[in-house]
Structures are given as C-alpha cells and as structure tokens.
Design a protein around this nucleic acid. Structure first.
Lengths: 124, 124
DNA sequence: CAGAATCCCGCCAGATACTG
DNA sequence: CAGTATCTGGCGGGATTCTG
C-alpha cells in the first residue's frame, strides 16, 4: 500500500519543509484570501469587503507576501483613482485543493475535538 | 466535476473553520510531532530526541494541546522513574494524509516559490 | 524521567494616521 | 482607492529552574 511515504517530507531536513509551509500559508488570512480569489480576480477593496474582520494592514501584508511568493498576480492600472486587481496564479490553484481538504477535515471533526476538549477540561 | 464545493468551509462562518484549523495544527511543532508519532507510540524523551531543535517547554505544551484536542493519547505508567507514552488517535491518523499532501505540495513547489521571491526581491 | 513554573524576548497583528 | 509608516499590546516560543 502507498503508506505515507511523504512523511519524510514533513520530518526531513529537520522540519524545514513544514517550517516553510507554515511560513507561507500559516498566516491567519492567507488561505482565506486564496479561497476568496478563487472566485476570480478582485480589487483590493472588494477583497477586503469579502473578508470581514481582516485589518487594513494585515490584508496588505498578506497580499504582498502572496505576490512575492508567486501565489497571486498584482495588476495595477494606471488610473485615477488607482485600481489594483489580484488574481490567483496556477501555483496557488494547485495548492487550493489541499487546503480545501484540510478545511474539510477541520469542519468534519470540529465537534469531536470540541467534545474532547470539554471532557479534558472537565477533569480539573 | 467536483469543483471546490468545500471552499465554503474555508470562508463560511467568517473563517472560523480556518481559524480553528490554524489554532490546532498551526503550531510550529504540531505536525512534526504527529508525523513522528506515526511510527508508533513513543515516550516523551524519545519523542524529544527525534525532534532536533524543539525546546523542552514547547514539546510539553504542544503535547498537552494535542492531548486536549484528542489527537494523541497519553499513557502514564505508575513507575519510578515515571514513563509516559504518547500515541496517535484515529482522529490524528485521519488528519495526517492531508498534512502530508500539503507537505508534498510545499516540497514540490519550493523551488518555484524561491525563484519568484528572488525575482520579486530583485526589483528593488 | 516527565513536566510545571518563571522569566524574557521577538514577532504577529490591530488601530491609527499619513501619502500618491 | 490602494497602499505605507508608526506605535502598541499580546502571544509564541526559547532558556532555565524546580518538583514528584
């Protein structure tokens, strides 16, 4: 059987891979931004509007990092007022299914985890 | 085709799901610990030995959280000196494949991302 | 051996204000 | 509109010490 041959990817190189992974998509809003952009290219403000709770600064920083990593494209139109549009790159598109799978897992087992927590916290 | 029906899981509930997910496995060592325990139940010290660089405190804290969330079992043997063994729960086992997939993605595209970063940083 | 408690630092992240 | 700059508090996380 396939087994988890890729476990070495997690532990190999002294966890560098996981470290990098967390660095890239570990941000609080990163996955949310990518998921939102999956609907199509969006302007900065529209993106902000669709992400309730994100701060101005954090969205700008996250977008900057995503752009730097080649996960989103940034198209600045030379107009007044300025108009900037963000869109996913193929790289980001290839990442999304995995993120979605993880999100699905989280949603599916949230109740179980919460129950464990409650039981654990009950034993003071 | 399936498409990403689960995208709603990422964005729904104002991102609570992703927030919870990051809270649970977003820790620096969490995934590493789970991956290491996939080899089988391990004692605290042995676990620490297999995770070069983890601090005493962080390992204890991470294990405590994992135990609280029902992702690992903690078996304390009443001996002197004490012996405590940790093992994965089925819940954690169901999570690992997804994590491995993400790690695989990170490893596969690390070069591309690094190239993007280099190009981006080149344009000062 | 396993872990809890304490101290401390650096970064993440929010709020606010300023610029092109 | 789309950012950047600055200040600030909170938390993650490391080193060390103490206990059963």
């Amino acid at each position: 059987m396939p087994e988890f041959k890729n476990l070495c990817l997690i532990r190999g190189d002294q966890g560098r891979t996981v470290g990098d992974l967390v660095d890239r998509i570990g941000g609080k809003w990163t996955l949310l931004i990518l998921a939102t952009l999956h609907d199509g290219r969006l302007r900065y403000t529209e993106l902000k509007r669709r992400l309730p709770g994100v701060s101005h600064r954090m969205l700008a920083l996250a977008l900057r990092r995503l752009h730097r990593d080649g996960l989103v494209t940034r198209t600045s139109h030379p107009e007044v007022p300025p108009r900037v549009e963000y869109a996913l790159t193929p790289l980001a598109v290839s990442l999304l299914p995995h993120a979605v799978a993880l999100a699905g897992w989280a949603a599916e087992h949230r109740a179980a985890i919460d129950a464990h927590r409650a039981a654990f916290d009950g034993d003071a």
